[in-house]
C-alpha cells in the first residue's frame, strides 16, 4: 500500500517527469533510432533500420578521431587553465573584492557575451588589416603573428575560451572562498599557520568540492565547444579545429550524413554520461571518506 505522502509526491512530480520525457526522452529515442538507420533528409519519415553500420562508419573515420582528440585536448587544457587562473584570482583578489564587491560584476562581464558573438568579435579583432591587435603589433614591432594561421590557431582559440570562461571559475571560487568561516582561519592562525600553509592545509581542502565542480563544468563545456570556434575559423584548414560538435554538425548538415552524424552524437552522449557518472561516484566516495 502506497503511503498518502508518497502518492502526493508522485502526483506533484508527474508534470516534471512528463515534461522531461517529452523534451529529452523523445528526441533521445529518436536520435538512437536514426543512428541505427539508413536515413537522409528525403527519408526522415521512412528510415530503414540498418544495425550498427553508422557506428562502424564513424569509428573507422579518421576525422572522427581527430575531432575527439581536438575536443579532449581543448577541453582538458582550457578547463585546467581556467580553474587554476580562477582560483588564483579569487584568492589574490579576495581582499579587493571584499572591499569593492561591484568589481566582481565587472570581472564576470565576459561570461554574459554569447560565445558566437565572441567568435565574431575576435574574427574582427585579430584580422591583419582591420584588427586592433595586429595593427599595434605592426606599429610597435613591425610584424604580427598570424593568429588564425595553422601554427597559431589552436592556441588562439584556447586563449579566447580561457579569457571568456575564467571569470566563471573566479565567481565560483570567490563565493566558496568567502564562505569559509572566519573562525576556521582564526583557529589555524592560533595554531601558528600562516599564508601559504593556511591556504594549502586549510582553505584548499575546503575549496576542493568547488574546484571539482568547476573543473567538471568547464571540461564538459570545453569538450562540447562549438559556436565561438565555428564562427571564428569554421572547421579549420583540413579540419584542424573540428571539435566533436562541429564534426557532428558538418556531417549532418553539410555532408548530409544523418545516420553517421547521429551515431557520433550517441557515442558522445555515452562517453559524457560515463565520464559524469565516474566523476560523481568519485566525488561521492570522497565525501563519504
Amino acid at each position: 500500500m502506497i503511503a498518502p505522502k508518497t502518492r502526493e509526491n508522485r502526483l506533484l512530480a508527474t508534470p516534471l517527469v512528463l515534461y522531461l520525457l517529452l523534451l529529452l526522452g523523445f528526441p533521445t529515442v529518436l536520435n538512437v533510432f536514426y543512428s541505427l538507420s539508413e536515413v537522409s533528409f528525403e527519408t526522415l519519415r521512412t528510415p530503414r533500420l540498418s544495425g550498427f553500420g553508422n557506428f562502424t562508419a564513424v569509428l573507422s573515420d579518421p576525422a572522427f578521431w581527430r575531432a575527439v582528440w581536438f575536443s579532449l585536448r581543448f577541453g582538458v587544457l582550457t578547463a585546467t587553465v581556467e580553474v587554476a587562473l580562477g582560483l588564483f584570482l579569487a584568492v589574490f583578489l579576495s581582499p579587493l573584492l571584499q572591499a569593492r564587491p561591484w568589481l566582481l560584476a565587472l570581472l564576470t562581464l565576459p561570461i554574459m557575451i554569447a560565445p558566437a558573438m565572441m567568435g565574431l568579435m575576435y574574427r574582427l579583432a585579430l584580422h591583419e588589416f582591420v584588427g586592433p591587435l595586429p595593427y599595434y603589433l605592426f606599429e610597435w614591432f613591425g610584424n604580427s603573428p598570424a593568429f588564425l594561421s595553422p601554427g597559431w590557431v589552436f592556441w588562439t582559440v584556447c586563449v579566447i575560451e580561457i579569457l571568456q570562461w575564467t571569470p566563471f571559475a573566479l565567481l565560483l571560487f570567490h563565493l566558496a572562498y568567502s564562505s569559509i568561516p572566519a573562525d576556521v582561519r582564526e583557529a589555524a592562525r592560533m595554531d601558528g599557520a600562516r599564508g601559504w600553509r593556511t591556504f594549502r592545509r586549510v582553505e584548499l581542502p575546503m575549496l576542493m568540492p568547488t574546484l571539482a565542480l568547476a573543473a567538471v563544468i568547464r571540461l564538459i563545456d570545453g569538450i562540447r565547444v562549438f559556436d565561438n570556434i565555428y564562427v571564428l575559423v569554421g572547421a579549420g584548414p583540413g579540419g584542424s579545429t573540428t571539435s566533436l560538435p562541429i564534426y557532428i554538425y558538418t556531417a549532418f548538415f553539410r555532408g548530409g550524413s544523418l545516420g553517421p552524424a547521429l551515431a557520433a552524437s550517441v557515442l558522445f552522449a555515452i562517453a559524457a554520461f560515463a565520464g559524469l557518472f565516474l566523476a560523481l561516484r568519485a566525488a561521492d566516495r570522497r565525501a563519504g571518506a
Partner: peptide, 18 residues
Amino acid sequence: PPDSTGYEFAEANAAYAS
C-alpha cells in the same frame, strides 16, 4: 596573408580594401 586559411568573403575584401 598567413592567416588566409581563415579568410572568406569579408576578410578578403577587408585585406584588399586596405
